[in-house]
């Protein structure tokens, strides 16, 4: 018995070594080949570096993009760098856009393809101080509500419509200072960002009344990865490589949160953006909640057809789009199946 076991073990080690060597050879060849001819692509996120985009930074940082044969340049989003404009203007190959934004572009004839739906649900919320007496959507009637301009206002409008609210809309800036000063009664906030900024400005969570849109039936899946349809048609494999690598980057970030936060902080520092670990950690943790499918064993990055439909319907109801595109066209599946 003993002898047999030893022999078996030896032969196992031998075969393992062989397999490893083979793997090294097979892996080494494409990598060296790819290094010489990495396909250069660019990505513009919605905003300047922060943990909201940790997956892409990690994919670049850890060589995941390179392993998929692409060399990705992550551009800086934010004020003056509209992701939509960069994508449509051809300055970027891929962009992080909200589903609602993409649907509007689609409706306007600018054909885009959703290669991945990263954030699965709405992370937007309205925040009020309990001392303001606002405890229900109805009690916002006539109050001053901070609303971001542009597509970020869409779910807020849907909320107002749902509850027949007629409020004093105050254009909200990138900070929550107006809310903190008491200049507005209700502020728009991203769960992963502004909400935590308010907390980190000394307001305790039990002093706040929160209105998550998702709790009020308003599901606006947010960040998705988009490319122009013509580019997608030209190089579907490249788009797939980018998508896979990005999702892998996200998985890596979730598996190594401390490292991911460190990398994000480094990018922020390079861009002279005020940053602190606690806030980015919070943001990455919330990304984890928002990105990983909440139920079932669905894969990361899939666009849920029902979400697609409800957003399309809401946009159509608000008169922002004339037609709702086909789900397969929108996600590029019609081509993949062809």
């Amino acid at each position: 018995m003993r002898k047999n076991y030893d022999e078996r073990q030896k032969s196992f080690i031998r075969s393992c070594t062989m397999a490893l060597l083979l793997m090294m050879v097979t892996v080494a060849i494409p990598v060296t080949a790819a290094e010489t001819s990495l396909k250069k692509v660019s990505l513009i996120p919605l905003w300047s570096p922060q943990a909201q985009f940790a997956g892409y930074y990690m994919a670049a940082e850890k060589g995941i993009y390179a392993r998929h044969g692409i060399d990705v340049t992550i551009m800086n989003g934010g004020p003056g760098h509209s992701a939509s404009e960069y994508l449509l203007g051809g300055k970027a190959d891929f962009a992080v856009l909200w589903l609602a934004t993409a649907l509007q572009h689609q409706s306007a004839g600018r054909r885009l393809v959703n290669v991945a739906q990263i954030i699965q649900r709405s992370s937007m919320m309205l925040v009020a101080r309990k001392t303001s007496g606002i405890s229900t959507p109805e009690s916002m009637q006539g109050r001053k509500v901070g609303v971001w301009p542009g597509d970020l206002a869409l779910p807020v409008q849907a909320f107002f419509t749902k509850y027949h609210l007629n409020v004093r809309i105050i254009p909200q800036s990138y900070t929550v200072n107006l809310f903190l000063c008491g200049g507005i009664d209700v502020a728009s906030a991203m769960w992963y960002n502004e909400y935590h900024t308010i907390i980190d400005s000394g307001v305790n969570s039990d002093e706040l009344e929160l209105f998550f849109f998702k709790d009020h039936g308003i599901t606006f899946p947010e960040d998705g990865l988009y490319t122009l349809e013509k580019n997608y048609r030209n190089d579907p494999a490249g788009a797939a490589a980018f998508t896979d690598a990005s999702l892998e980057g996200w998985q890596y970030a979730f598996d190594h949160p401390d490292e991911a936060v460190m990398v994000v902080l480094r990018h922020m520092k390079t861009e002279h953006i005020p940053a602190n670990r606690a806030h980015q950690k919070w943001m990455l943790d919330r990304m984890h909640d928002l990105i990983l499918p909440p139920v079932g064993n669905k894969k990361m990055g899939q666009l849920n057809p029902s979400d697609f439909k409800s957003v399309g319907a809401e946009l159509h109801r608000q008169g922002l789009i004339k037609t709702i595109p086909g789900f397969d066209d929108f996600t590029g599946r019609s081509d993949a199946s062809k």
Partner: peptide, 24 residues
């Protein structure tokens, strides 16, 4: 807002708030 405006540790200036420090 509790943002650190001046501090001998310059890395904190305008980056951290006293609350983010408390949190981390």
């Amino acid at each position: 807002n509790g943002t650190i405006v001046t501090h001998p540790d310059t890395g904190m200036i305008m980056n951290e708030t006293i609350f983010s420090l408390a949190e981390s």
